[in-house]
Design a protein around this nucleic acid. Sequence first.
RNA 1: CGGGGCGUAGCGCAGCCUGGUGUAGCGCACCUGCCUUGGGAGCAGGGGGUCGGAGGUUCAAAUCCUCUCGCCCCGACCA
Length: 554
Amino acid sequence: MRFSKMLIPTLREIPADAEAASHILMLRAGYVRQLAAGLYIYLPLGLRVIEKINKIIREEMNAIGAQEITMPVLHPAEIWQETGRWFEIGDEMFRLKDRGGRDMCLGMTHEEIITWLAVREIRSYRDLPQIWYQIQTKLRDEARPKSGVLRTREFLMKDSYSFDADEDGLERSYQLHADAYHKIFSRCGLKFYMVESDPGMMGGATAHEFMAPSQAGEDEVVLCASCGYAANIELALSSPEKIEVREWEFEEVYTPEKRTVEDVSNFLKLGPEYFIKSILLISNEGPVLALVRGDQELHEKKLNKIIGEHRPAQKEEVKDILGVEAGFIGPMNHKIRIIADICLKEGVYVSGANKPHYHAKGIRPGRNFTAEWHDIHIAKEGDVCHKCNGTLKVERVIEVGNIFKLGTKYSVPLKALYLDEKGLEKPVIMGSYGIGPARIAAAAIEQNNDRDGIIWPKSIAPFDVEILPLNMKDARTKEVAGEIYKDLTDKGIEVLMDDRDERAGVKFKDADLIGIPTQIIIGERNLKEGLVEIKDRRTKETRKVKIEECKISL
RNA sequence: CGGGGCGUAGCGCAGCCUGGUGUAGCGCACCUGCCUUGGGAGCAGGGGGUCGGAGGUUCAAAUCCUCUCGCCCCGACCA
């Protein structure tokens, strides 16, 4: 392609409302334009990248026997009502009515629709297993679209669904996807981790996410370098660092106006890890006291799984329920349910004395209070791996893919049944698997850029090579550029030629910004010796080669 | 939905606090001509704005007040 004939509107300055590197660079390098919050137009270069990614996805999906189909974006409400999600999902679903007044919605995912299809087309165990996929637009009315293409209201997703006769079959389909995903993300040049994740409302027991490390990400993962444990921080287990046990006898200490762990810790000159933080919460079944070590944070989501929906108690409620004002609460002598973090099970601690302006020292779990023991703290950098005693690392990541074991969550309500060998009717066992191509592109940029612009992995770059004829007014330059362009193109190499009548500096800047991995620089100086330069975008290294060797050297 | 910020030419911004400087300004981009061609050149000339929108205060509003719409960031949410 010729640059002069292509819409590549590069920007010199950083757009005011972009912050993430990928967002800034996609705008500056002319890959995308924003229509409205969370809605993007892909320009020619952007589209080429997405299609490169989609091609890789298709190849790997087809390789595991998945079959591509395509489903509508507009869905009738009835089917979503049958699974209950029409009612469970709130404002995030775009809803509308058709001219007949029927409720409709825009597809945020396609479990319902694919299951509708399975209901009709799968009848016998002989029809199983099946993997069907599509690369389709999804619409979600996100509360807060952000970071350019990383979180949008309309986006492309590769979603696949597996149908199996039993759990073993599902395990095989799940594994096939995990393997295919590894290949896809590797081929796209991403650094990534596969981590345990919370199945959430997708249902089912097992789920994993594919996470590309980047500061621009919205998630955090916990990683153990020694045993390979990897989990989303939403469910990651860990053991806080062990502390030396102090053999204090129980005593009450006067701590005037010292209410926070920090205050008391400074006042008593004792590290926060020797404190028990007591937090009163109100669940649907009444008040619950949650206990974590003073240097730890309570993990709301973990607690949610134990006590259900809850909210923090108000100051007056603390006094009413525990008989003491907030700041001096301790775990002793309460009749309400107490959930304590496992790391408190051993040791001797300091906590509120349930008495204004007093804390109690020498509190022993088991003796001074009892509790239900659970992991309810947020794992953090430096914690001990609960599997191997290694040291944990926490990293910020972009979710680029996920895989879920759904089981019968959709096949039962929608009656996707098959007849087994004995003629018994059974629900199909399902899995659901997603990949966001735009997130792959954005993550690739986040992981591969420098001061000058994007550095695409070769596999997903919009072009393989960019030719820079530095002076288009020079006949020899033009001639050689034309020859090399034709040569490479004939060999099947995708070439962008900057044939604009621009000064050399402009072409260099734009080429670095756009980030095509290899540049061929054609300047009059080198041409006199029959040479052109080949430059690697990543390393900036150049080497001079003879014109005729140009294609061989790539 | 809660908190914060911002809407002035295609892009980036100044002007607003303290209303009035005459035709609303600067840089880049754009158009014409000359010149130039190895890291976003130079000179000369030129086009482009209902100052997000509506209402109000005032002799006078980009500037003050009210409402409203949009965008970004933090948080909540995220199938």
